[in-house]
Computed example of a mutant assay.
Amino acid sequence: IELELNERTNFQQILAEAVHQLLSGGEYFDYIFIDSPPSLGIMTVNALVAAQEVLVPLQAEYLALEGLTQLTNTIDMLVIRLNPHLRFTGILPTMVTTNTLLGKGVLEEVRAYYGDIVMETIIPRNVALAEAPSHEESILTYQPASKGAKCYLDAAYELVSREEKS
């Protein structure tokens, strides 16, 4: 799809135009989530141009921090050039191992640099979370009583609570 999008004019705004058409059709949505690939290609740029807010799931490893820096720079550029309404509003630490120095170090570093946009809820490494996709189920249907499911529910509640405060 990246090759096909690259051949079109205004390729960065195709998803934004589709979302606009959807919303101008009279339907109302509380939220529209756009899940983009973990790269800074055309599809991710399209998602960022169409979005109003960005929530980044951040794997608690140092290489992910480098990717987050690149993403932050891309968001800053897109705000100037294509989407002045885009806000970077949340970072959700995922695949966290809190009993290691690496896991703790990454969390400390991201919280020190990004402050309040880093969510309090963290998603730990969890076998059920790793297994759910292989069963073609979400964690909430695969093992709803698991720690992973509970943490994702906590993250959802935190997101709603943050929105109510703003």
Rank of each mutant, 00 (worst) to 15 (best):
E4P: 03
L5C: 09
E7H: 11
R8V: 10
N10E: 11
Q12V: 12
A16T: 00
E17W: 05
E17P: 00
H20I: 01
Q21N: 07
L23R: 05
L23W: 01
S24C: 01
G26C: 10
F29Q: 13
F29I: 10
Y31L: 06
I32K: 03
P37G: 10
S39T: 15
S39A: 13
I42D: 02
I42L: 09
N46R: 01
N46G: 01
L48P: 03
L48E: 00
L48W: 03
V49Q: 02
A50G: 03
Q52D: 15
V56C: 13
Q59E: 11
Y62D: 09
A64W: 02
A64I: 01
L65G: 02
L68H: 06
T69I: 13
T69H: 09
L71K: 04
N73P: 00
N73Q: 11
I75A: 01
I75W: 00
M77T: 14
I80L: 14
I80T: 15
N83G: 04
P84W: 07
H85S: 14
L86I: 12
L86G: 07
F88S: 09
T89L: 04
I91W: 03
L92Q: 09
P93L: 15
M95L: 12
M95H: 03
T100P: 10
T100V: 10
T100Q: 06
L101C: 10
L101G: 15
L102W: 07
V106K: 09
V110Y: 14
R111Y: 06
A112V: 12
A112C: 11
Y113M: 05
Y114H: 05
Y114V: 05
D116K: 15
E120M: 14
I123Q: 01
N126Y: 04
V127Y: 04
A130K: 06
A132S: 06
P133N: 08
S134C: 12
H135M: 13
H135T: 13
T141C: 05
Q143R: 15
Q143H: 12
P144V: 13
A145H: 12
S146D: 11
S146N: 11
S146L: 09
K147V: 14
G148S: 07
K150D: 12
K150S: 13
C151S: 14
L153C: 13
L153N: 12
A156S: 09
E158F: 00
L159P: 00
V160E: 07
S161C: 05
S161L: 08
E163K: 12
E163Y: 09
E164C: 13
K165L: 12
